[in-house]
Design a protein around this nucleic acid. Structure first.
Lengths: 237, 237
DNA sequence: TTCGGTTACTGTCACTTTCACAATAAGGGG
DNA sequence: CCCCTTATTGTGAAAGTGACAGTAACCGAA
């Protein structure tokens, strides 16, 4: 029985939720997009360590602030043609890397819009489509009641940027005024950080950094889809 | 590398949240309480099937209505003295079994109050204390926004019984009137079922069964501990 | 039959939270 | 100095929440 680690690495690029996929260079599903991952390097390697290793192999994340957590374990008998391979999937969330990240291990690596995977337009190797779906669902649920969304931002960010995170992950639009109020109402979620910076013209925005709070209360609840906006190609189940 | 399946089986007994523990009959941690579980029976057995098998081995659950879901995977290098053993833990929730369930596989099986494990009063084998803690935390969180609580009840149940579930799992007391209102406000959470039955004297209670709704909206939010009731021996982290 | 005991069930009011909605502030560039 | 762009703030209606007590229905005993 072989144990592997797979990674669902999410980030924001141009306001869209993206997942890092590599093109398989070897034979099961050769040439097909797949999640980055691999076997444990040596017997005795911790699972979480292996996930960290794969993460730094695949992304050039110098800043140590990357969220990484276990997602779920996938071990269906027929998921790998080579035999019984059980994979412990992990969810990683990184701030928007401007570089497309040329892979070091696999043939090619690229940020793919999450929508392409969710809609089924893009076919993935193994059961990786399911894993990506589960990972995104986890992220969508978890940003409601935890400070996870700040992991999509850099060290310093504006409230507008944070709002873009929520909008991209949930695939909805939010009211700016209510978002400002709710986010600032959560004690210790975001804390001010010195001066402001400007972006595209306009008034400079205040900068914040992630605060000590990890559990959001009251939570930022995801708006209910109003049944007349189900056209984004995203399935709700 | 060996793969095992462990089960956190939760139920309600006399209004208290209990977990099923077996006394280990073999040598690593012999005689110590542990979670039911075991190795995959044959190479190729599905992980979820193995969990179901262990569940029916350990409990005499004739009614098929038991909730079973994957919890997390534990693979720390030193967790098993025999070598590298990775365990996929599962969370099971069953209606209150009146029988103490004499174990068929392990030496002995018994329902243990969750508080004994959470408080650390009872020492468990391996890292099973952590697994139980994670399982209970999962249950506590999940009954807020899913219909999971009905899995603690039988086919038919009263609203008062459902309230006892929430109170036992959360370890808090709830206002009866508000609970009635909230539970009935969720469309399709519980649906009426015919006639009423009496319990200890009193007015007969209406019976309900679990409805089709699986996501609770609005959710039943767990009351915030008011910092003057932290004495139940349960740690809040 | 009535009465007391026990448990199930329901209604109100004050308060907080949520949502929908628009005007003002602060820079940059011409 | 004016215009453009984006950031930031306030308000009123509506819904939800929490605290609170009384009525209803059945049982068994007097």
């Amino acid at each position: 029985m072989l144990l592997t680690v797979d990674l669902v690495i999410l980030t924001l690029r141009e306001g869209r939720l993206c997942v890092l996929l590599v093109e398989r260079g070897e034979d099961p599903f050769r040439g097909m997009p797949a999640l980055p991952g691999g076997f444990l390097s040596h017997d005795g390697e911790e699972i979480l360590d292996a996930a960290h290793r794969e993460l730094s192999e695949e992304t050039a994340l110098t800043a140590g602030y990357v969220h990484l957590e276990q997602l779920a374990t996938y071990g269906a008998a027929g998921r790998d043609p080579r035999g019984r391979v059980v994979s412990v999937a992990h969810l990683a969330i990184a701030p928007g890397l401007p570089e497309p990240v040329a892979g070091t291990d696999a043939s090619d690596a690229a940020w793919i819009p999450a929508e392409s995977v969710l809609s089924g337009a893009l076919e993935l190797a193994f059961d990786h489509r399911r894993i990506v779906t589960d990972g995104i669902e986890r992220a969508r649920t978890k940003i409601e009641s935890s400070a996870l969304a700040t992991a999509f931002c850099g060290e310093l960010f504006t409230i507008a940027e944070l709002q873009q995170v929520y909008e991209a992950v949930w695939g909805t639009e939010l009211d700016t005024r209510n978002f400002y109020r709710k986010v600032q109402a959560v004690e210790g979620f975001i804390v001010p950080a010195g001066s402001g910076r400007k972006t595209t013209g306009g008034r400079p925005a205040r900068l914040y950094r992630a605060g000590p709070t990890t559990v959001l209360f009251p939570p930022l609840s995801r708006p209910v889809p109003t049944a007349t906006e189900e056209d984004t190609g995203e399935k709700g189940n």
